[in-house]
């Protein structure tokens, strides 16, 4: 089976179309989506309609959750006060334009999806807001895959795609007066699908991944599209112009926790 996994579309209809076209050419069997369909971009309703009409299994992202539940992204998940204030403006705008049926759709999205030994989440199995950064401590990353009871964990949220193989970790627990307990994990994988609509890898191109279950091969795809169209629409819709400026440079900053193990204690 060949899966395409997309994430973090953020109301960027142009980018979504380009990615779907690219997926068509790759002849995949199934598409999965890891959420964040809305927020920042100018076409939240259109993006959701497209995902729905294609019946793409989707889990809920932090933006989808916030739009449904009211803004409750914990403050610590924003990298700066500036990002937070901009995030709020994007939230207010999206909240105003979203159609009721779109909101209902977002509300019923599951937190995770499962297919055999594969698990799909937006941020991490713990929370839609947690970042699984590629440099996170290997044993902490391993714990996330085990928590998902999977061999391959698909996530998004960081907007930079990567694939990470975790091999041969050994943990020993020694309790006073008892025989030590030893644990050895089999090979695990984390696959980050990047971002269709708000890339952060320094180029404006959309990113997503393809996973082949037979060969266990992961392909990171980078798809050019007419981002100027999205930038124009951002300005037209009255969203903060800086979103367009950042989108054109692949330096969207959405939410990003500085500390990969950041613990929300709200």
């Amino acid at each position: 089976m060949k899966y395409a996994v997309i994430s973090c579309i953020h109301g960027n209809y142009e980018a979504l179309n380009a990615v779907l076209l690219d997926i068509d050419r790759q002849r995949v069997d199934q598409i999965y989506c890891l959420g964040d369909l809305v927020g920042y971009g100018p076409y939240p309703n259109e993006v959701v309609e497209m995902i729905r009409s294609l019946d793409i299994p989707t889990c809920q992202g932090c933006w989808d959750e916030d739009i449904v539940m009211g803004l409750n992204a914990c403050e610590c998940s924003y990298p700066s006060q500036l990002a937070e204030k901009r995030g709020r403006r994007a939230h207010e705008w999206t909240n105003r334009v979203l159609h009721p049926e779109v909101r209902e759709y977002l509300a019923q999205l599951p937190m995770s999806l499962r297919q055999g030994n594969l698990c799909f989440v937006h941020g991490s199995p713990n929370s839609q807001h947690e970042y699984l950064l590629p440099r996170m401590h290997g044993f902490a990353a391993l714990e996330r895959v085990l928590a998902a009871q999977a061999d391959v964990l698909f996530c998004g949220h960081t907007h930079i795609p990567y694939v990470r193989y975790l091999r041969e970790g050994k943990i020993r627990v020694h309790h006073r007066g008892e025989t030590p307990q030893e644990f050895q994990a089999s090979v695990k994988m984390i696959v980050n699908a990047g971002s269709v609509g708000e890339p952060r890898h320094g180029r404006p191109n959309a990113t997503y991944v393809i996973y082949d279950t037979d060969t266990q091969e992961v392909t990171l795809r980078e798809v050019p599209y007419d981002y100027q169209k999205t930038c124009a629409a951002i300005l037209e819709q009255g969203l903060p112009p800086i979103f367009a400026w950042r989108l054109a440079r692949g330096m969207e900053f959405a939410e990003r926790a500085d500390d990969p193990h950041h613990v929300c204690q709200r």
């Binding site: 990298p79 700066s80 006060q81 500036l82 990002a83 800086i242 400026w245 900053f253 500085d258």
Partner: peptide
């Protein structure tokens, strides 16, 4: 200034 915001401000 909020330090990370100042970084973003200078970058932009």
């Amino acid at each position: 200034f909020d330090p990370p915001s100042l970084d973003e401000l200078l970058l932009e």
